[in-house]
Design a protein around this nucleic acid. Structure first.
Lengths: 288, 288
DNA sequence: ACGATTGGTGCATGATGTTGCACGCTTCAA
DNA sequence: TTGAAGCGTGCAACATCATGCACCAATCGT
C-alpha cells in the first residue's frame, strides 16, 4: 500500500496509476476531493474529473459535488438508497407497469428501481410474481391479484436480495414469461453487466429462464461497462429509459432490435406524497 | 463505520458526505444539534439546516427546534407502517430485544408484533437471523451485525409469510438457538394455538427445531383458544406480556414453569432514545 | 522517414450547484 | 412578557461542472 509515496505537489503519476491511487484513497477515506487530488498530482482538476467520471462509469465510485465517494458506504443503508432519485425511478416504474399483461408470470430482479416498479403494479392483473428481494416481496404481500413467490436464501447485504447457489437452484425450475431485470449497465456492443459477482450469476441464470426480458435503466447506467458481463444485448427484448435519455445511445439500442420505451418526464407533477407544504430542497447531491 | 474520522473543528468532509455523517451521528446518539454540527464541519448553521431539511424531506430524520432526532421507528414502507402502528407492540418488541445474546442464531416467526421486534434489534450483536416473513427480512437487510437468511416459498397473503411444504423442508435443516414465535393464542391448559392451518404447521415445525422458544402476546391473545393447536405450553420457555397484563393469567404461566417478562408501559415506552444522558436538550417539539 | 491518427491534457466558457449573510418571523425559556 | 436563540427566504458571491477546442506526444501505416 506504500507503493505510491507522493511528495506533495510533485507526483509524476501516469494516467493509469492515478486511477489506482484514487481508488486506494477512496477505500481508505471513503471520499476524495477533486481539488485536493489535482494539487497532489500537480495536474488540472479537469483531468481529475475525467478520471472520476471514468471510475464512476465503471461503477467503482460515485461522483458527488466536489469529488467522489465510495459506491455504497456501509453507513448508508438500502433504505437511504431507495430515497435517492425516487421521482425518476417512479417514472421508470410506471412505464414498466404498462408492459404487463394479465395472467403473466413475472420475475422481479433486485434493486431500488424495481422496488419503485413493484409499487406501481396495478391491481387486478392476476399476476404471478416471483422475486428474491425481500423489500419487493414485502411491498407485494397481500396485494390483490398477485400471487407471490419468494425466493429464499442467504441475503447479500450489499445487493439486498437472496443470492448464491440455493436461490439459483430454486429458479432453475421456473419459466417466467417476463423478467424485470434490475439496475445494471447496458452497452450496445458490450451487452449487459453488473457490479457484483453473485448478482451477475443470478441475473445470467434469470435471463436464461425468462421468456422475455425487459430492463429499466437510469441515464447514468447507459453506455457504461460493468465489471461482470451478464449477457449479449440481443437477449434483452425491451429497454425502458428516462425521458431525457440521450438519443445517441438509445438509437444504438433500437438498431440492435430492442424496443425502446421512454418514461414520462419526472417533472414537478408527482410532488405530493409526504409534506405537500414546505420548501423542500430537491437538489440532488449525487452527480450523474 | 469509522470511515469518516473527524478532527474536531476541521472536517474536510465533502458536502455530500455530510449527510452520511449526520445519519451516523443520528443513529448513534439519537439526536444531533445544528450548532454543534456546524462547528464540527466548520460551516455555517444555515448549511446544516439545509442538510437537515433535506434529510427530513426524505423521511430519514425528524427536525426539532435546535437540530433533529431519529425518526420514530416507522420509517419503512407505508404498508408496513399501516400494519405496525401500535405502541404496545413496540413495547413488547423492546422487551423481546433484551432477551437476545451475542452470536445467537434466531428465527423470527411472522407477524406484526415480530416486525416491531425486528425494528428494535440492536446493532453489533452478530446475530444470524432467519425468517419467512418478507417484511421482517426487508427491515433487517443491510443491518450491521445481522446475517440474514430468507426462507422462500409461496407467500400466504393472509399471514404475510412463506408457508407450505417447501418452507418447512427448508427449516428442517436449521437449529436456531432461539425462536421468536409470532402472534397466536396461549392458554395455560390448552397450550399455544394459531388460526390458520398452514401457519400452525409451520409454527409446530419451528418449535421442534428451536433450542428455546419465546412468545410475545398482547393482552387480547391471553387465555384465548385458537382453532389449531400448536404445542403444549411447556415447550415455551419465555413469554413476554404487556405491562398491564392480568396477573391472574400470568400466574398460571409462571406456575407452569414459564419465565414471564413484563414490557414497559407503552405510555413512556417511546420516550427518549437509548442514551438518556446528553448535554444538549433538544425539545421533542417537531418542526413542520 | 514522414505524415496521419489517436489519446491525453489544459484552458475558456456558459451553466449549475453550494454557501454565507441579511432580514424578518417564530419559538423557547425565564 | 421579554430577550435570546433558532428558523425560512431571498440574494449575491463563490465553487464546481460539462463541453468544445487547441495543443502535444506517442503510435501506426505507408
Amino acid at each position: 500500500m506504500m507503493l505510491h509515496a507522493s511528495i506533495e505537489g510533485q507526483n509524476p503519476a501516469l494516467p493509469a496509476n492515478r486511477h489506482a491511487i484514487i481508488l486506494d484513497r477512496l477505500t481508505a477515506d471513503g471520499q476524495v476531493s477533486a481539488s485536493l487530488l489535482a494539487r497532489e498530482f500537480s495536474t488540472s482538476e479537469d483531468t481529475i474529473r475525467r478520471d472520476l467520471r471514468d471510475l464512476a462509469s465503471r461503477g467503482l465510485c460515485q461522483r458527488v459535488y466536489g469529488g467522489a465517494v465510495l459506491v455504497s458506504p456501509a453507513s448508508t443503508s438500502i433504505r437511504v438508497r431507495a430515497t435517492e432519485g425516487s421521482e425518476r425511478k417512479q417514472a421508470l416504474g410506471r412505464m414498466l407497469a404498462t408492459l404487463l399483461r394479465p395472467g403473466q408470470f413475472i420475475f422481479i430482479d433486485a434493486g431500488s428501481t424495481n422496488l419503485a416498479f413493484a409499487h406501481q403494479i396495478p391491481d387486478g392483473l392476476n399476476l404471478t410474481v416471483a422475486t428474491h428481494d425481500p423489500a419487493i416481496a414485502a411491498c407485494l404481500v397481500g396485494r390483490s391479484g398477485v400471487e407471490l413467490l419468494m425466493i429464499g436464501g442467504k441475503v447479500n447485504p450489499k445487493i439486498g436480495a437472496a443470492l448464491g447457489g440455493g436461490p439459483q437452484r430454486e429458479i432453475a425450475s421456473m419459466s417466467p414469461d417476463l423478467l424485470i431485470l434490475g439496475a445494471c449497465s447496458i452497452h450496445a456492443e458490450n451487452g449487459v453487466g453488473a457490479f457484483d459477482f453473485d448478482d451477475a450469476q443470478m441475473k445470467t441464470a434469470l435471463i436464461q429462464r425468462a421468456g422475455s426480458t425487459v430492463l429499466a435503466v437510469q441515464n447514468e447506467k447507459l453506455g457504461a461497462v460493468a465489471t461482470h458481463q451478464i449477457a449479449a444485448i440481443d437477449l434483452i427484448a425491451d429497454v425502458v429509459v428516462e425521458a431525457d435519455a440521450p438519443t445517441a445511445l438509445t438509437e444504438t439500442f433500437s438498431s440492435k432490435g430492442l424496443r425502446v420505451h421512454h418514461a414520462a418526464p419526472a417533472s414537478i407533477a408527482n410532488e405530493g406524497p409526504r409534506h405537500a407544504a414546505g420548501p423542500m430542497r430537491l437538489t440532488k447531491r449525487v452527480q450523474r
